[in-house]
Amino acid sequence: MGHSVLVVPVPALDPFVRERTAFYDASFLSADPAFVNSHITLLGPWLPTPGELDLQRVADALDPVPAFDFTLTEFGEFPDGLIYLRPDPVAPFAELSARLVAAFPQCPPYGGAFPQPVPHLTLDRRSPTVDPVTVRAAVGGLVPARCRAERVDLQWWDNDDCHVRHSWKLN
């Protein structure tokens, strides 16, 4: 069963993230040209079938937020082995997430599993052959990545059905 997620797409890292996604489960690669596998999650899982009023509440929450620049340089690893890049600055992502959580309190980030979620871009997961050092080497010249958050996408994630359902431009 699929789920929806509100994300900031990060095209600069998409070649690497798509390659790793294909390695683990190619059914999560999308034919939708608007869909970017590489992203920073703001709120997910979100509503499975949002209506027009829900989409407007997202627009209202995002309205005062301007587009912003960020870099991805710092690698990290969560206790569960998830290897990621942390955006700098992190504050605009935390603000976007807080605005969306305030608009949709029934949708806690990550289903409430992490009370203080850390904005991040997922790269890979630790295994006997994968660790932060091997991931850093594999990412190569893609990092440091200088990026711009210009929009928030509502993505649908499901096996063989990943696509963008809606998109909002940041001011």
Rank of each mutant, 00 (worst) to 15 (best):
R125W: 09
G141K: 12
D160N: 15
P9C: 05
V58T: 10
T41N: 10
L13C: 05
T49N: 15
T21F: 02
R136H: 06
W157G: 10
P115C: 06
A145T: 02
M1W: 15
V10C: 11
A102Y: 10
A137D: 09
V135K: 07
T21S: 02
G76F: 08
L42R: 08
R136W: 03
A61E: 04
A67D: 13
L13S: 07
V133W: 09
F78I: 06
L42Q: 13
S167K: 00
V36W: 07
W156A: 04
D14V: 13
F16R: 04
D88R: 15
R99C: 08
D32P: 08
T71D: 05
D32A: 11
P128M: 03
A138M: 13
P9A: 08
L13E: 05
W46H: 10
I40S: 01
G141P: 12
R20E: 12
V130N: 04
M1V: 14
D158P: 11
T122L: 03
R57S: 09
Y24S: 07
P119G: 08
R125P: 08
L170D: 02
V164Q: 04
V133D: 11
L170P: 01
A91G: 14
T41L: 11
G112M: 13
D69G: 03
G2Y: 10
P115K: 06
D158W: 12
D160P: 14
F75Y: 11
L43E: 03
C107M: 14
A137T: 08
F114W: 15
H3S: 04
H166C: 13
P87E: 11
P64G: 04
S167T: 01
V17W: 00
F75D: 09
P11E: 03
R86E: 09
F23K: 15
E19A: 00
D124M: 03
Q106F: 11
V7A: 00
P9Y: 05
P115M: 06
R125Q: 09
R57N: 05
V101P: 00
H120L: 00
V5E: 06
P48A: 14
P105L: 09
R57D: 03
P48H: 15
D161N: 02
G112S: 14
L82T: 12
Y110Q: 12
L121Y: 00
P9N: 08
P105Y: 08
L53H: 10
G141C: 11
F16D: 01
R20G: 12
D54E: 13
L96I: 14
E77V: 14
V90P: 01
E19N: 00
F114T: 14
M1L: 15
S27A: 11
F93W: 07
V7Q: 00
A91Y: 14
Y84I: 03
F68D: 01
A149E: 09
Y110N: 14
M1H: 15
T71M: 01
P132L: 12
P79R: 03
V65F: 13
F68L: 02
P128K: 06
G76C: 12
G112E: 12
D54V: 07
G112T: 13
A98P: 06
E52V: 10
V130H: 03
D124E: 07
T134A: 10
F114S: 15
Y24E: 13
Y84G: 01
A91Q: 15
